[in-house]
Nucleic acid binder design. Structure first.
Lengths: 211, 211
DNA sequence: TAGATTGTTAATCGATTAACAATC
DNA sequence: TAGATTGTTAATCGATTAACAATC
């Protein structure tokens, strides 16, 4: 299913940073940038930046550099940010609510349609205008609302069963905040946000710094 | 200041996963594990696992494997999780509150002493027993409470100025959730949680999968 | 002792950097 | 045209994997 024209994951993980700086440049009205200038902003080498872009075709012009608006548009397309996505969240605790509340995702094209939980005390509440629904009703909701992304903000014990629900209902992208690994079919993408692990890495370097 | 005996960052970022599985094994009462078995759990190769551990000294025993409890304790020490840390959060919005509310961090030895904000409407409120204080009072609070970790959950516009406050007050570890880069002195460690970038990578693979 | 599995060296693979011809 | 900067190939560097002697 996926193209064999595989770009390495280390390259892909740099793309959002390029996109972020290009958005800023565009907002500032800067129309042109060289790999050397982007290197100063991002901290990547100019050579690496040119290599990265050339994974997707030549966006630049010799002697000139890159047109900010063009490059921004290309990266937007590459990252899939030129379409809109519908998402749901299972786990209406603080983290789930925080994500539902964050306007930034909606601005980027990711709309949270509903939260789901099994706790009767939160079912029926609203976060902004997003309702918390009973987890028992999720199957029909996903089918009827063209949901492409499933977010997991439950405790780790429930995460795999939530993933199973998502997969069963045809969701192909899972954003997992629970501190556990998930087993899903090959055609389903899982992106983890590992808050614990991030904090532990900070702790490691904090200690390493003081030795 | 840092030891020159540098372990590469790619290795360091794998350590929390080892630690997580060793914690599980320990809870299950399993006392012994081979690199081959750990490979099945983690998805890393057995060879890589042995290489990783040997960055920190030989924890295993030929013909036997690794003692779960010993290895768990060593990793805990390496990650700096055998001490406790005091943290504060600037930015008492949903994300800041969610982090303050998360018991898991406290269990791992990271205690949030206070949230800070400049919005008078939230100052004085409590999340669990953690008070939201006026950002104007942060300097003395940090000095009087032995705070080692500063967490940033403000909008990106304020993040650098918060980092400056942390640095000025001697904080050496910053956990940044704002979608921006930070400039800090060499002896200060910054760990970023880039929610936007994570979501964009999910979006990338979602698209790549369907082409 | 025989079997198992580590610790470690050597080989391979992939990612980054350097260099420069192409060309705007 | 001359100067600048890309796109791309080649060189280097670092990380992963393979292999196996050491040894429990």
């Amino acid at each position: 299913m996926a193209k064999d024209n595989q770009v390495s994951i280390t390259v892909v993980r740099r793309l959002p940073k390029y996109y972020r700086y290009l958005t800023e440049l565009k907002e500032k009205g800067i129309s042109r940038i060289s790999s050397q200038e982007l290197s100063v902003l991002t901290g990547f080498t100019a050579s690496q930046i040119r290599q990265d872009f050339n994974n997707f075709g030549g966006f630049g012009q010799q002697g000139y550099g890159y047109n900010v608006e063009d490059l921004h548009r290309e990266l937007k397309k590459i990252l899939g940010l030129d379409s809109n996505y519908n998402a749901v969240i299972v786990g209406a605790g603080n983290l789930g609510q925080a994500i539902a509340n964050y306007k930034g995702f909606e601005d980027a094209g990711f709309k949270v349609l509903s939260l789901f939980d099994r706790n009767p005390r939160v079912i029926g509440l609203k976060i902004r205008d997003i309702e918390i629904r009973d987890i028992e009703t999720i199957d029909s909701f996903i089918k009827e609302n063209n949901v492409q992304i499933g977010i997991i903000t439950t405790p780790k014990e429930s995460a795999q069963s939530v993933a199973d629900i998502y997969v069963k209902n045809g969701i192909k992208g899972i954003w997992n905040f629970a501190p556990t690994d998930l087993v899903v079919p090959d055609n389903v993408v899982v992106e983890h946000v590992r808050l614990n692990e991030s904090l532990f890495v900070l702790s490691y370097f904090l200690r390493a710094m003081n030795e």
